[in-house]
């Protein structure tokens, strides 16, 4: 199962870079993200998988598509998008792959502590809820203030009327 999903993810990510039509690129990226969400389910991380789909596929991918539609990117001419820097990209990719293979080969395996899975709670979504509203209540509340700040910022910077400068 893992190999099937992993192959799917790798296949889609190759599609992201080789396709010449931006919309196909974006849709393939969605494919990558969904395959990874499926891998999360096989790892019994239902919450992470749900968030992956909601936030990345539901939110960010749709935004990408909106941007592509609004800017009618076809005018750029597909090929020009990925010819200039491909040599550097391939070199970096080879280095990264080599690095990963080296560490897999050498096999550095830190001994990880067993993180207690809460018993008697229905799966990790419910456990997440307990953690958020009880143990991490304070950070959770502060996060709401953080979001408020983000909203203020977005409103401020996108407000149309800029008062006249008389300074």
């Amino acid at each position: 199962m893992f190999y099937f999903l992993a192959a799917l993810a790798v296949g889609f990510s190759i599609m992201v870079v080789i396709t010449r039509i931006p919309v196909h690129s974006a849709l393939s990226l969605g494919g990558v993200l969904i395959s990874i969400a499926a891998i999360f389910i096989t790892l019994e991380a239902e919450f992470l998988s749900a968030v992956q789909i909601l936030v990345y596929v539901g939110g960010i991918m749709v935004l990408f598509l909106f941007v592509l539609m609004l800017f009618s990117i076809e005018k750029w001419g597909g090929a020009a998008l990925h010819t200039r820097t491909w040599k550097t990209a391939v070199a970096l990719g080879v280095v990264l792959a080599g690095e990963l293979l080296f560490f897999v080969w050498k096999g550095i395996t830190p001994s990880l502590p067993q993180i207690a899975t809460p018993a008697g709670l229905g799966g990790n979504i419910e456990a997440m809820g307990w953690a958020l509203y009880q143990r991490y209540l304070l950070p959770f509340e502060v996060a709401s203030v953080l979001l408020l700040v983000a909203i203020i910022g977005a409103v401020l910077f996108t407000r149309k009327q800029i008062p006249k400068d008389n300074g």
């Binding site: 991490y136 304070l138 950070p139 502060v142 996060a143 203030v145 953080l146 700040v149």
Partner: peptide, 11 residues
């Protein structure tokens, strides 16, 4: 707590 540190820092 690392989480509280992070949220405060982001705010």
């Amino acid at each position: 707590d690392l989480l509280t540190i992070y949220i405060g820092l982001e705010l």
